[in-house]
Design a protein around this nucleic acid. Sequence first.
DNA 1: AGTCCTCACCGG
DNA 2: AACTCCGGTGAGGACT
Length: 553
Amino acid sequence: MHWAMADGPHGGVTVRPVDPDGTPAGPPHTYPHPADALRHHPTADRWIWPSTAAFYPRLLDAGITVPRCHDIEAGEAILLGHEGMWGLPRSLAAACARLRGLPVPDDPPPRSFGGEPESTLFDPEPATPHGIDDVLAVHAAQRDRIAASAAPHRLRLLLAAESAGMLVAAEMHRAGLPWRADVHDALLTELLGGRYPGGLEPPRLAELADDVSRAFGERVRPDLPAEVVRAFRKAGVRVTSTRKWELQDVDHPAVAPLLEYKKLYRLHTAHGWSWLQTWVHDGRFRPEYLPGGAMSGRWTTHGGGALQIPRVVRRAVVADEGWRLVVADADQMEPRVLAAVSGDPGLMAAADGTRDLYEALADRAFAGGRAEAKLALLGAIYGQTSGDALKYLADLRRRFPAAVAYVDEAARAGEEGRLVRSHLGRTCAPSEAADDGEAGLPQEDDGGGASARGGAAARARGRFARNFVVQASAAEWALCLLAALRQELAGMRAELVFFQHDEVIVHCPREEAPAVAKALTAASARAGEVMFGDTPVVFSFTTAVVECYADAK
DNA sequence: AGTCCTCACCGG
DNA sequence: AACTCCGGTGAGGACT
């Protein structure tokens, strides 16, 4: 039985059973706490609520998980995009107002999971509370909108997966990634030479800055790009920036200490002691995950840059005593997804097993080897406009015409401002509508609209759309995988603790590791089935059971 | 003093 | 070999 949940009187909740067709199946009940509702209705197998982020943490605090949910706000965002309306408020209140032709309120500023530091202090008073009947009405309307779409079963799957992602996000935030502050601190001390009190830079950085100045023969601050460029010019070296890839080809004694300085400076500012103190508490790093935070449906995070943990710092991610980390990385996820969504026979054949896709490609089709095959395929997905990838693109086009045509068509549609959708129906906003109106995507011309710049902007939109159909569909596959994995792990002590585009980490007791690996395989197969039916494409993982994240792959 | 912008790096 | 797609974050400087 499905149940709907809404804010109730005095901080409590109101719940009501819902028939499969979306109509009420019984009278409403009111409880002082959502956990009470869950205890009184244990047969509920899907909870329909306005926002997982608003309701679920309170349940998790009470030690309660739910099997499935329908997240009204998440669904609203996807449906609005699908209907070609971007930037509209997604809250239950907004959806309700649209339904009834009333003035639509703006969304409140994003709220934090769990109410860690500085979250709730400045939240405005909640808008007029919306009751259980509003939840039911918007839910029923969303069902109708799905049914009226071109591919209802796909959109239905997308909304279900996105809702499952919301559950996973809340659960992962609560579990946290095991993080050894002492190991991290030792690592920083080793690389930076210890930490000066009083905000001075660490010894190693000071040394390197001196080396740079000595090489230039004058005082140069390495963290000021303009100053570094000027110093190089004076030394007779013409550089346009201080980017690593430009500098590393320059023959000058300042280059080596400068690159080393930049590497360590980055570590110090982005993942140094300040980061450690801010983001790691009680042996856990708890970022806030935002499923669907990027237009492609990829997740984003808030706090601590959780999706950019540098390789060196992964040394500090260590399983608890007697526990293990199961680190699983999807093998060539995007190319395999391209094979499945495009239905290209040759590419599907290359992806029909667990062997390295690029190697299979090189064997079947290319004069070049694995590296060239990878370059060509990623170039096709990214819309590469220069470089070696173009050499192989013609070959790719000849051997895998359907796959290349698939991304080419997306690029054309993007350039022409048409709607572009992922496999399950997530929709790519034309750039004019991308960000609530004003400053859009890559282009920056408005008004006068010089046609030359308009052409460049159109091509940028083309590349965006070309990448979108692959990246968004891949994100959907990953989402389906997470949903399946979450169910496979139910009843075990194992916990999902990290997710990054094509990689998951499960923290589990040592003896559960084999079962977790099995669960991953099963979940991967289920994700492929629900998204693509009986496709020959195989989605495989490289799995490592380790005590320390840095020891995976 | 606070806000916005640029640069540069991290990850996928 | 080259810098193409996505995003988050911090420092520093220019601006109001």
